[in-house]
Write a protein that binds this DNA or RNA. Sequence first.
DNA 1: GAGTGGTCTAGACCACCTG
DNA 2: AGGTGGTCTAGACCACTCA
Lengths: 233, 233
Amino acid sequence: MQQPKKTGFQDVRDEVMRRIETRVWDQGALLPTEAELATEFGCARATVNRALRELADRGVIDRKRKSGTRVTALPVKQAKLEIATARRLVEERNATYRYALVSRRMQAAPGWLGSQMGLTPGTEVLHLEAMHYGDGQPFHFEDRWINIAAVPGCAEADFALKPPGEWLLAEVPFSNADVSFTATAADAALADYLACAPGAALFQMERSTWFQDAPVTFARMTFHPGYRMRSRY
Amino acid sequence: MQQPKKTGFQDVRDEVMRRIETRVWDQGALLPTEAELATEFGCARATVNRALRELADRGVIDRKRKSGTRVTALPVKQAKLEIATARRLVEERNATYRYALVSRRMQAAPGWLGSQMGLTPGTEVLHLEAMHYGDGQPFHFEDRWINIAAVPGCAEADFALKPPGEWLLAEVPFSNADVSFTATAADAALADYLACAPGAALFQMERSTWFQDAPVTFARMTFHPGYRMRSRY
DNA sequence: GAGTGGTCTAGACCACCTG
DNA sequence: AGGTGGTCTAGACCACTCA
């Protein structure tokens, strides 16, 4: 036997990627057509198409009808960030997770929240404050607002045991979100909750969530000093 | 005419997604087989396969041979983060970009850098410090280290006009990276560069880059106070 | 062993774009 | 107008995994 396996789309994809990395095809260069590559690799055009489509999804090549396929000149790198629950983040670090509800009350949505979530101001919302711990150490403080109209069940849930994030994930599993990250100085309350000095630099994540265009929840997570969010690409 | 267009894979994908969102198929539920869906939608199995593959890539469904396709119980949300150059970030805000090299020198890699990049300590590296401005205001401070062995050309480039990030992107376009985000307090030097008070909370991004397992560069970007990194999912 | 998804094929038609 | 990628089809075989 000479070739124990046929050329699959992964072989084509990897070989094309190799030629781009090694500058056989330089930045901006025009690649052969799908049909030509199919002939070269001895496979069907659909196989080449599948391979090139994956590279296009990664942003490695640009494809246009009629003009053909080119190596992306200045690729825009994309990092995939996993937005996990606090429990997952803590347990990934092999620590014991603990959750504590700090406060829970219904109130009219303040103005900043209205504009943040696209909610008419004065709408009744559920406001929760909670702490998440890893091995007894403060992990992050959660300031959460839930649109009662969008998630009626939240009025009955007391969130004493289950974090609102997990509850919502089970209740409204598929949704869209805007997320932003920033650094903030600890105020007196945060310094107390997170056991740090007032003014300490803290990593903060804010997330607004919608379900089919209806605003669901806004959450601001403020992490303990030194927290680091990692990713790869 | 009744149906002006045939059912494509996007139609199948969207309809399946709709049924999952509306809980026709609840979390953890078993979906019909590809063959059954193909019959229902009146298309080929390959079309259904393509549709379901995209949903699986998004993390909406889990697929296993023999056991079939299930709705993911607790979907792990993934945010796509665009890692853009400073120029891009500034110009997206409709501001005028300006770059200034602060310092440039060859030196032996310090210990922390060696472990950070997987570089043997003492290796000759190029150390650059630079500032990036938007409309004359400090945007971020860049502290960059380049492995000369991996990118020989950097010894000749003077980086007075072109930011090292852009230079590297053109020189080593396809590479892997670890990236991490954190909050840090401004020290005296950063406070000076970024025109803020010492101790101010600053958003910081660190990135280590490899090309085919060879360490290329490490960069620490410290942003002006109040900087916010955004994403969607 | 048998059912399910994973992939490939050869051919076809279409949509979009550029010359 | 013609070339290129985008997609679909019908059928086939394979690989994994569960019973």
